[in-house]
Computed example of a mutant assay.
Amino acid sequence: MNDCIPLIGQQMHRMVRRFFTAEPLARFAELFIEDKLAETIRFGQLTVIHYRMFGGNGHEVYEAAAAVELFILASDILDDLQDQDAPHKPWMQAPQPIAIHVASALLTLSQQAMLSCATNDEMRLALMEMMNRLLLQSANGQMLDIMNDIVDEHSYLDMVKQKSATLLQLACMAGVMLAGQPWNSIVAEYAIEIGVAAQIQNDLRDLLRWDDKSDFLQRKRTLLTLYLIESESDEDRWIKDYFENRLSIEEVVMKREIFLETCERTGTILYGSVMSRMHYNRFEELVDTIQEIGPWKSTFLHILNQKIA
């Protein structure tokens, strides 16, 4: 499936050149897209592989994949601007009003790209209804994440399913529907499961790092930091004190080794790994119920395992 990546990139650039007639807008958009293309494009690959799985054989799928990737890029830009934790990214080095404007324009361009890929009005309406509904769900989840006030496992999973997992639903379902198939509830469910599994893996990585993206130093409430906060041990009380602002970052920044030992001793790392694996196992169970996936299963799992590795 790696051979589809250049084709997706070409469509992203083509849409920019067609609709962004203001030279500065096109220039910054092209710069941001190039940074995105340097990464492994997985959301767009999911669109292409689902299109093939469900019988599609045309080239319009690359426009649909570009639509998905344009939205993911816009979302990444806005997320980094909100979190202020990716200073090396070109949109973080651009003046903030420009970065915000380009992200907003890319959101609209992603919808235009999805409209352009449809082969008839009925499909166009179905794709746009699906896309807008999922993007609104993602916006709700993003707001919950920004507020950073989740209190338990249920509220965490609700936030992740809305914010992150719906984007995987969008990627997968765009391919299914472009192939002429209706909304597939099993595909929708396994996209949610793999989205949750991937997010917990991301949270594990961000729990253990000790820089601007550290969930602990940023006092970010995730399934794993909540687990740590709930520790009743006196020796771990400083973690709760830090999250409740009774300790400053200057008072904890030298405690990295103690923190890592605490994550191991309390079973937090094991807990995160088990929770991620549980959702991944459910994903695999669902995949095995769809006959169309059979010939594509190894390729599909390879794409997804890169995402949650």
Rank of each mutant, 00 (worst) to 15 (best):
D3P: 06
Q10H: 14
H13I: 14
M15G: 02
V16G: 05
A38T: 13
R42A: 01
G44C: 08
Q45P: 01
Y51K: 07
F54Q: 00
G56W: 04
A64H: 08
V68I: 15
E69W: 02
A74E: 02
D79V: 02
W91I: 12
M92C: 11
A99K: 02
I100A: 13
H101E: 12
V102F: 00
V102N: 00
S104V: 08
A105T: 09
Q112I: 13
L115A: 09
M123G: 02
M131N: 09
L136T: 10
G141F: 03
H154T: 15
S155L: 11
Y156R: 06
D158K: 09
V160G: 03
K161A: 15
A165F: 06
T166Y: 00
L167I: 09
A171R: 01
M177T: 04
A179G: 07
G180D: 14
G195L: 02
D203S: 04
Y227L: 09
L228C: 15
L228M: 15
F243H: 12
L247W: 14
S248Q: 12
E251S: 14
L260M: 15
T268R: 01
I269H: 04
M275K: 08
R282S: 06
E284W: 00
T289V: 13
Q291A: 08
Q291D: 07
S298F: 11
T299E: 12
H302K: 15
A309R: 15
